[in-house]
C-alpha cells in the first residue's frame, strides 16, 4: 500500500470516528431507549388485552414490520413536509428508528412475557396481588431476563441501521465516509475503514452483552 493511502486512512479514521461517537452512538442510544419504552407499552397492552389499545398495537407492529426502514425514513423526512410538517434530520431519524425498533422489540417482549409460566401469575394472585402488581413485580423482571439476548441483537442491528440516516442528511459515520471518499477518490479503502469502525462498535456491544448475560444468569 502506498504511503499516501496510509496517511489518508489514518487521517480519515478520526474524521469518521468522531461523527460515530457524536452522532451514530447518540442516535442509537436515543432511538433504542425510546423504542424500548414503546415496546414495553405495546407488549403489555397486548398481554393485558386492553380493548382498543391491543388492536392499535397489533396494527402498529403489522405496519412497521411490513414496510422497509428506508421507506419509513423517507416518508417522515421527505414526505411529511408536504403537509407542512418539517423536521430537522436528527429528531426525524430518532423517531423513525425508535418506532421501528419498538415494533420488533415489542414482539420480543410479548413472547418473553408469555413464556413466563402461568404458575407465577397464580402464585401472585394467591398472595393477594392484583394483575398489574404481578405483571410489574414478578412477570416483567423475569421476561426481561429472557428477552435480554434478543434485545441485545436488536441494539446491535440498530447500530448498523443508523447508517441509513445518511440518506436523510444526518451526518453520521457513513455520511462522513461518503464525503471523504468523494473528495479523495479512494472509495474502497474508506468504506472498508468505515466497515471496520462499525465492526469495532458492534464487537464492543457483543462483548458487553455476553458479560451482562453471564451476570444475569448468576442471579
Amino acid at each position: 500500500m502506498s504511503e499516501r493511502l496510509w496517511e489518508l486512512l489514518l487521517q480519515s479514521f478520526g474524521q469518521i470516528l468522531i461523527p460515530g461517537l457524536t452522532i451514530t452512538i447518540p442516535l442509537t442510544v436515543c432511538s433504542f431507549t425510546i423504542g424500548f419504552m414503546i415496546a414495553l407499552v405495546a407488549a403489555t397492552v397486548q398481554v393485558a388485552g386492553i380493548k382498543g389499545l391491543k388492536e392499535l398495537a397489533r396494527l402498529y407492529v403489522w405496519v412497521i414490520r411490513g414496510t422497509p426502514l428506508l421507506v419509513q425514513l423517507y416518508v417522515i423526512f421527505y414526505g411529511l413536509p408536504g403537509f407542512g410538517i418539517v423536521w430537522p434530520a436528527f429528531p426525524a431519524a430518532v423517531v423513525v428508528f425508535a418506532v421501528n425498533t419498538g415494533a420488533y422489540a415489542s414482539e420480543t417482549l410479548r413472547a418473553a412475557i408469555e413464556s413466563v409460566p402461568k404458575g407465577q401469575w397464580e402464585a401472585g394472585y394467591c398472595v393477594g396481588m392484583d394483575y398489574w402488581q404481578i405483571l410489574f413485580r414478578i412477570i416483567l423482571p423475569q421476561a426481561l431476563k429472557t428477552a435480554f439476548p434478543p434485545l441485545g441483537n436488536s441494539l446491535i442491528g440498530l447500530v448498523k441501521d443508523t447508517s441509513l440516516a445518511a440518506t436523510i442528511t444526518v451526518t453520521e459515520m457513513f455520511m462522513a465516509a461518503q464525503r471523504i471518499a468523494a473528495r479523495t477518490y479512494e472509495p474502497f479503502a474508506l468504506y472498508c475503514e468505515t466497515a471496520l469502525i462499525y465492526l469495532i462498535f458492534c464487537t464492543i456491544l457483543t462483548r458487553l452483552q455476553r458479560h451482562l448475560e453471564k451476570k444475569l444468569r448468576m442471579e
Partner: peptide, 17 residues
C-alpha cells in the same frame, strides 16, 4: 384469597425473588 393460602405442586416460587 385473603382468607386462603395456597401451596402448589410445583411450588411456584417467584423465580426473581
Amino acid at each position: 384469597r385473603r382468607k386462603t393460602g395456597f401451596v402448589f405442586q410445583n411450588y411456584n416460587l417467584f423465580r426473581n425473588k
